[in-house]
Nucleic acid binder design. Structure first.
Lengths: 160, 160
DNA sequence: CTAATTGCAAAGGATTTGCAAAGTA
DNA sequence: TACTTTGCAAATCCTTTGCAATTAG
C-alpha cells in the first residue's frame, strides 16, 4: 500500500469526489518523490511511464492534495510553485539557494515557539506559517567567492 | 524633500540611469503609502492625480526601487505582489489575516538570531528571509468563533 | 545630440476554465 | 444510468518585452 493512498481516498469520499486512476497516479508520484517537485516534473514522469496525465488534471489534483493536507505547496518566489509530501512528516522551513535552486529543509523548535509567543501577544490565531531563507548554499557560496574575488558590490542590499 | 528622493537619484546615477518624472512619481507614491500596496493601487493613484504612468513603467520602476533597497517586495502567496517602503525602516516580518487581508508587521530579534544560527550550522549564506504567518487577526478570530460556534472542521490542517 | 525612457500593444509563463467525450459509483 | 472527471484548447492573470516616439543629460 502506497503512502497516503487510503487517506486520500477517504478524503475524496468525504467530499463526494471520485477515486480515479489519474488522482492516485499523482498522489503516488508526489509521495515517491524526494520533495519539492514541480508540475513539469510530474508530467514528465507520467509521460515516461506511458501514462500521460493532462496538465489541467495535475493542477486540479494537486489542489485537492494540498487541501487534504497530504501535500504542501511551496512558492519559491520566482513564479514556479513546487510541491512536497507532508504525509507522515513534520512541519519544516526552507532555505532556498539563489545559485543552484536547491531547497534545504530545516526545523527549529525554538523559532516555532517564539512565533507562537509573538502571535499570542498580538492576539493573532495562527493557521500556517512560512519561513523561507534565501541565500547561497555551501557549494554556491564557495563558487561565488572564488569568482568575485574580493570585489563585492556593496551597493546591492538584495531584498526581494 | 520627500523621503528617499536623494537616495534614489544617487542610486540611479550610479547605474547611469536617468532621473525622470515617472520614476520619482512612483517613489513618492510608495513612500507616501502606509505600505503593502500593489500595482493597481499605484496606477489608480496616478490616474487620480491626472498624472498617468503606464503599467510597464510602474513595474520597471518598482524593480529598480527593490534593487536599490528602498522598497521591499512582499509576495502574499496568492499571486499578487505587494510593495512597501524600506527606507528608514528596519526589517520586519508579517502576519497575514486570512479573514480581512490585513497585514500586521512584527519583529523579533531572537527569531532572527536563531535563523543566523541555523544557517551557520548548514553553512548557508543568508541574503534575505521571509517569515509569513497566516491566520486570523483578533477581530476576525472573534467573528469566526461566533459564526462557527463550537463546530470546527478538524480535518483541515491547512498548509499552503 | 545621443543614449535612455516611455507607452502601447503584443508576448510570455503559469494556472484556470468551458465543454464534449469518457469514466466511476 | 446519473453525475464526475478528463483532456483539450481557449481564456485569465500578472508581468515582461519589442519598438517607435519622446526626453534627460
Amino acid at each position: 500500500m502506497r503512502e497516503g493512498k487510503q487517506e486520500f481516498a477517504e478524503w475524496l469520499a468525504s467530499r463526494k469526489l471520485r477515486v480515479t486512476g489519474e488522482r492516485m497516479a499523482v498522489l503516488d508520484e508526489v509521495m515517491r518523490a524526494n520533495g519539492h517537485i514541480d508540475i513539469d516534473y510530474l508530467q514528465e514522469q507520467f509521460r515516461k511511464q506511458k501514462r500521460p496525465v493532462s496538465r489541467a488534471t495535475i493542477y486540479r489534483t494537486l489542489s485537492h492534495l494540498v487541501q487534504s493536507g497530504l501535500v504542501q505547496k511551496v512558492l519559491t518566489g520566482e513564479g514556479q510553485a513546487r510541491y512536497e509530501k507532508m504525509y507522515g512528516r513534520q512541519h519544516h522551513d526552507h532555505m532556498i539557494c539563489l545559485g543552484c535552486g536547491e531547497i534545504i529543509e530545516f526545523t527549529n523548535d525554538e523559532i516555532e515557539r517564539l512565533q507562537d509567543w509573538v502571535c499570542h501577544k498580538k492576539r493573532f490565531t495562527i493557521v500556517t506559517h512560512t519561513l523561507q531563507i534565501k541565500g547561497f548554499c555551501e557549494k554556491c557560496s564557495a563558487q561565488k567567492a572564488s569568482v568575485e574575488g574580493g570585489a563585492t558590490d556593496h551597493r546591492r542590499h538584495g531584498r526581494n
